[in-house]
């Protein structure tokens, strides 16, 4: 059983929901990332999504685009992201790590070499934004053979056929993109998320994590009441961007935000 499955099972037993931060590896500089990951675990997160910087992040809004640009400015790459993951794993053998990024860096490395390197680095899941299941079956097989979960996105306009397809090819969890748009955009329409998550649950037994638009403790709590996991990305990266001259301040603000989300999610009632 993968670390992701174990984590979601344990959370379900305790009646808790997964708090899943997304950060871009190497933002604002490479040495910042691993200490931040450890601090986030201490603040109560359950899974970490580590963004692989890419020159052309087509599905991301301006906040994550700029995070990618900052990281690439420090020569970050898929290989160096994997090195950071491996460094994290040396002292944390339990918290699941999910790589999230775009396909071309994986194409450049080669699927098999990537799958091997991800396994060595202790990666638990891989979410490739621009690799839908039609094109990604081979990559998914290579990952699954190494106990790494291929994670797929679902959107508000995804049909039942798509949901069933993701249930078949995906594992670990399904990532529901809560709005039509890019990361960091707009605000959540809770009623539509509720309806769609219910539809997802009718067609999959996989845990459902919801992201795009989670900004604060209140939205995290609302989503946690509907889904199995809450993904927060742009709101964290905004803290980095707002404190570029003081990374320690950024780290502290990220930890405070995550801790407030954890508290809200674990509190019963409104």
């Amino acid at each position: 059983m993968s670390r992701l499955a174990t984590t979601f099972e344990a959370l379900a037993k305790s009646g808790s929901k997964a708090l899943i931060p997304f950060i871009t590896a190497g933002d604002p500089y490479p040495e910042f990332t691993v200490p931040l990951m450890h601090a986030m675990v201490t603040a109560g997160v359950d899974i970490i999504e580590l963004g692989v910087p890419f020159s052309d992040p087509m599905a991301d809004g301006p906040v994550i685009q700029r995070a990618s640009e900052r990281a690439l400015g420090h020569k970050m790459s898929l290989r160096r992201t994997l090195s950071l993951a491996m460094e994290f794993r040396r002292t944390n053998p339990t918290t699941p790590l999910v790589l999230m990024g775009y396909l071309n860096p994986i194409e450049a490395m080669g699927y098999e070499e990537f799958a091997n390197a991800a396994q060595r680095a202790g990666i638990d899941g891989v979410l490739t934004v621009d690799l839908p299941p039609e094109e990604g079956a081979h990559c998914a097989e290579l990952l699954k053979a190494r106990d790494i979960d291929p994670i797929f996105l679902l959107a508000p306009n995804s049909s039942v056929v798509r949901i069933q397809k993701m249930d078949t090819v995906g594992s670990g969890y399904l990532y529901y993109v809560s709005l039509k748009g890019v990361t960091g955009a707009g605000h959540l329409d809770i009623a539509s998320v509720q309806t769609k998550v219910a539809e997802l649950r009718a067609h999959t037994g996989l845990p459902v994590a919801v992201g795009f638009g989670v900004k604060d403790a209140a939205t995290a709590k609302t989503i946690a009441d509907l889904a199995d996991g809450v993904v927060v990305g742009s709101a964290l990266i905004s803290k980095i961007e707002g404190n570029l001259d003081s990374p320690e301040q950024a780290k502290q603000e990220i930890i405070e935000l995550l801790a407030s989300m954890r508290l809200a999610m674990d509190t019963f009632g409104a």
């Binding site: 910087p53 890419f54 020159s55 052309d56 087509m58 690439l72 790459s77 898929l78 290989r79 775009y102 396909l103 071309n104 860096p105 994986i106 194409e107 450049a108 490395m109 621009d130």
Partner: peptide
């Protein structure tokens, strides 16, 4: 260039060894 994936299709691209578009 070399084959890779950008803007929805696989084709020849100008990219570096890490797959970043140049």
């Amino acid at each position: 260039g070399r084959p890779g994936v950008l803007h929805g299709n696989r084709t020849y691209l100008m990219a570096d060894d890490d797959g970043e578009i140049i």
